[in-house]
Design a protein around this nucleic acid. Structure first.
Lengths: 160, 160
DNA sequence: ACTATTATAGTAAATGAATCTCAATAAACA
DNA sequence: TGTTTATTGAGATTCATTTACTATAATAGT
């Protein structure tokens, strides 16, 4: 399998773009990160290592990485985007705890089938999907299970 | 079934909050909107009708509507949040065209089962999920099916 | 109804993520 | 080596959202 750097270089080559040490250093850093990241964290992490890259360059590089399938947007929370590198990982979705923010990853092959069905049904050419499930982890359940008097929305039995 | 106004009033009553004409007017307007909306559009729509409500009030009211289950965030695109009213509608997901932005709604009962499975597997108390499928609609397919030379990411057969 | 309390509205200022401008730099290539 | 032009960094800018502040008005108690 190509390395992420090779993928990116191929992408660069096929456009009017240029290889630069900044972009490749940013890409390297992203693939050294376990889990999710945001622009600020990435910037600080590079700074701590003495790598001089401006935030503007990070903001400019991310759409390229996304466009060539190396990175994807995970979610927009806390007022900004969170990303993850996806190249070399099988597609997965996220289960997020609304209490502590913990994020678990899980796979759901059933969604492939759903995509096929949607493609047939609506004539779409499906590119992908985002699925995020939210709830409270075992440790946060008590906090999450709001006091009964707040359950004014008398949902029916398929309440989830 | 309770009206959305009643739901909101119950919610208000059970907190330290107060009923105000502004919030109830905003809520009414939201439920008159077909489809998705954003703060700016909602504000203009109210303005056109001669309703004087500040954007700040809209921004302050939305979290309340979301908290009591009347409204939900749909996605963050074009630099701001999009919402929809959900009370009285069965849960659905979105198929969005990356070309023209068209949004189709579809249901997927299979996700209920997924939620149950995740609850069992990880001990989570699941509150809900967001699923968004992306692709190109029949009219935009040609634009979306990028020139072959750009498919440098040699994906395998489960490419979707 | 009158009063006290305090949540809420509106306005404008503040915040902060993301984008853009522009001059200097450095890839790419003849 | 020289030319072309994409890219960088710094700072300014934009724009959605939040906040501070003061006036208002909703609620509860009398």
């Amino acid at each position: 399998m190509k390395s992420e750097l090779q993928v990116f270089q191929d992408y660069i080559r096929q456009r009017d773009l240029r290889r630069t040490r900044e972009r490749e250093r940013i890409l390297q850093e992203i693939f050294e990160i376990h889990g999710h990241f945001d622009v600020d964290g990435l910037y600080l992490q590079l700074k701590q290592k003495g790598v001089k890259v401006s935030k503007a360059s990070i903001y400019r590089a991310l759409p390229l990485f996304i466009d060539c399938g190396l990175v994807r947007e995970v979610d927009f929370s806390e007022g900004h985007w969170h990303y993850e590198h996806i190249y070399g990982h099988s597609h997965h979705n996220h289960l997020r705890c609304l209490g502590c923010g913990e994020i678990l990853e899980f796979e759901n092959p059933g969604l492939d089938h759903l995509e096929e069905q949607l493609a047939r049904q609506y004539g779409y050419h499906i590119k992908g999907h985002h699925l995020q499930v939210e709830g409270y982890c075992p440790g946060c359940r008590q906090a999450g299970e709001a006091p009964a008097e707040l359950n004014f929305l008398a949902k029916d039995s398929n309440d989830r």
